[in-house]
Design a protein around this nucleic acid. Structure first.
Lengths: 148, 148
DNA sequence: TAAAATCACTTTACTACTCAACTGATACGA
DNA sequence: TCGTATCAGTTGAGTAGTAAAGTGATTTTA
């Protein structure tokens, strides 16, 4: 281990480059359905948890309220979601158009995403990776930034 | 394993949420040095590989040429880097100001980043994770998006 | 019951990226 | 020597995010 790196920092770098590349390729892949990676990500969450409000959705996507507000405005304009102002909150649902697109896009994207892993890791290795990454991800939601 | 998920897609989701959260927390952490995560990432690469040109740098950061062009324009304006027009290419170097900032920021950020891993995984587990992620990352640089 | 707090969401100004069209300099073939 | 190709970098238009201030309707409290 050199002065300039720790095992953790090397893992971090690989993770960032990998997720970045995958994000770009997923964007490219999803073009055939007229969706971006971020839009697809939102639609999957809405599809799974609808009806839900904006704050709940922001939490699930690890994005701020402001970010969700804009994103949903675009998706609404494009006819993918509906927002209904209820008692204090806006309730989000997929439109039938989005349901139709997702019925095609979801299994295709699932297969594409899965191929990244199936082409390099055995099932045993994937299980190990899932366990380690799950611990990391759960820890990161509790962790806070140290004081200055 | 349900109809809606594969092991690979579950790993992917955890990875995206984890890198996203870490990115946000790193932004927060680096504020004390007046840097963003993206700027820090660029400065580390320049520090390590200088002198280098913009295309080389774009490759290392898995970012497009256009993205690097804008980013470097900002960093130059803020006095962190210098660009010298050579035979066809622009050669990038850190300024003494950036060297001074990085001498402080680099070890601090290294320790912060490392803590994410040291607080949840044993050294043995980190070694395993590094090996698996390395294979994934290398594979992702060769892989291409399937035809429509 | 009028002022203050709360709550979900929006907006403003910004960073950071994408793709694709463009610039400007050098090289090269007819 | 005059197009033409190439090549590094820039730019325009757009998406996607951030932090922080603002809105507007309720609800609490003094």
């Amino acid at each position: 281990m050199s002065d300039n790196h720790t095992l953790g920092s090397l893992i971090w770098l690989r993770l960032v480059r990998f997720t970045n590349r995958s994000h770009q390729m997923t964007n490219d892949f999803l073009k055939r359905f007229g969706l971006t990676t971020a839009q697809f990500d939102v639609l999957v969450q809405v599809r799974t948890f609808q009806p839900l409000n904006q704050l709940e959705l922001a939490g699930k996507l690890t994005v701020t309220e402001g970010g969700i507000s804009r994103m949903l405005a675009r998706l609404e304009k494009d006819g993918y979601i509906e927002r209904k102002q209820g008692w204090k909150t806006k309730t989000i649902r997929l439109t039938t158009r989005a349901e139709a697109v997702m019925a095609q896009a979801f299994p295709a994207q699932l297969a594409f995403q899965t191929s990244f892993f199936d082409e390099t890791l055995t099932e045993e290795e994937q299980r190990t990776l899932y366990e380690l990454v799950t611990r990391l991800q759960k820890h990161s939601t509790n962790k806070s930034v140290p004081q200055e």
